[in-house]
Simulated assay, not measured.
Amino acid sequence: MALIANFVRQDKERFSVHDPIDAQVSSFQAPHGRIVQIDTFGRGTRENPGKISQTIQLDKTSGEELFRILQAEFDLI
């Protein structure tokens, strides 16, 4: 589990599209502010397909930063 502090741009030479998976989004109030949590799950072919694979958390600052990145990358308004 990780609370993202900031995003660092890294350009890579090789990319691959991963298999689609499900994710659950939840939020809660923490002592220093609201947190949005995203839990991802492994593919159905995994040994434990319903088990949480990764968890990331965003606070207001990292959420705003991710929002700006998504706006720029997908030409969102």
Rank of each mutant, 00 (worst) to 15 (best):
G63D: 02
T40M: 01
D19L: 10
V8K: 15
V36F: 11
V25H: 09
M1W: 02
I52T: 09
H18F: 03
M1I: 00
E73H: 02
L58F: 15
V25W: 11
S53Q: 10
P20E: 06
L70M: 14
F7V: 05
S53M: 11
A30T: 04
A23W: 02
I21E: 02
I35L: 03
Q57K: 14
L70H: 08
P20T: 02
S62H: 13
E64A: 06
D11S: 12
I52D: 04
Q71L: 05
I21L: 08
V17R: 13
E73N: 07
H18K: 13
T45H: 11
R34S: 07
S53N: 03
A72I: 02
T40K: 04
A5N: 14
S26R: 12
R14F: 15
A72N: 11
L66M: 13
L66T: 04
D19T: 08
E13H: 12
D19Q: 15
A23T: 06
A23C: 10
V8F: 08
G63N: 02
M1H: 10
E65Y: 00
S27Q: 13
E64C: 02
G63W: 04
R14Y: 14
Q57V: 01
S27M: 07
D19P: 04
I4Q: 10
G44L: 09
I4H: 12
I77S: 15
F7N: 05
L70F: 15
V36M: 08
A5C: 07
F15V: 05
N48A: 13
F41Y: 04
G42D: 12
Q29D: 05
